[in-house]
Amino acid sequence: MLLAELATLFRRLRVKVLLGVLAAIPAALALAVYLSGGPSSGRGPTFLDQVSHNGMFAALAGLTVAIPFFLPLVVAVVSGDAIAGEANLGTLRYLLTRPSGRTRLLATKAATVAVFCLAATVAVALGGLIAGVILFPIGKVVTLSGTTISLLEGIARTFAAAGIVAASLLGLASIGLFVSTLTDAPVGAMAATAGFAVLSAVLDNVPQTRAIHPWLFTHHWLAFGDLLRSPVRWTDIVADLRLQLGYIAVFATMAWARFSTKDVLA
């Protein structure tokens, strides 16, 4: 069932385009650095100034650039569409007249959205890596702590970072899944979900709301960078994963409470 669900999602043109754009972000960054002929003067996104020394950093620069806006937007589109999109197409009523049960269908949807989150971040990392390898030399990787690790370990840590970013997006994805059970209008669900991401990011930047900062699901979105320290700093990553787990637990059960009892009228 999950495979059929995944096949349905990834065959969609919209999803292919989104993944393509995600992969193009770091590639465009790398190309910009290449054309401007050298490192930018220490400004701009972190990791970008390292791209011309080591093409591998294009992947990390891509993640840094995509995490505040584009990744949450894409996740909002896919998670907001999860149930509302099926309702909108009318396919929801046919899925539910198959004897799988609503809880199971919702679980499959949740798993699909999670897989998509990973696909999205891996697309960014891969796009960056490929562009970086083509345009720039690659080699040993300098960590944020000023130590040097092998290229292989650097790439491994980059993909681990992509995994962490994907996990960081799961809280938002579960909000999207819940919102998606509330309406038959997918666009509304997507916009509302993206709205939550913006709200969380804004609150996280307002000092007056400092008390709730650690509870905002966007708060630790840059924690993936801690994988590039030596020793790796786990505090924020663990805090991030715990927070996301909390959001998932609350919003996934809310989605379940709503979806397993709602009238499917579409």
């Binding site: 909390g246 637990a249 609350v250 919003f251 059960t253 379940w256 409470a257 397993s260 009892t261």
Partner: peptide, 16 residues
């Protein structure tokens, strides 16, 4: 029984 399902997320939030 359907209403009671909402107690699950409430309980989860409380536990967290």
């Amino acid at each position: 029984a359907r209403r009671l399902r909402w107690l699950v997320p409430v309980a989860v939030a409380a536990a967290i």
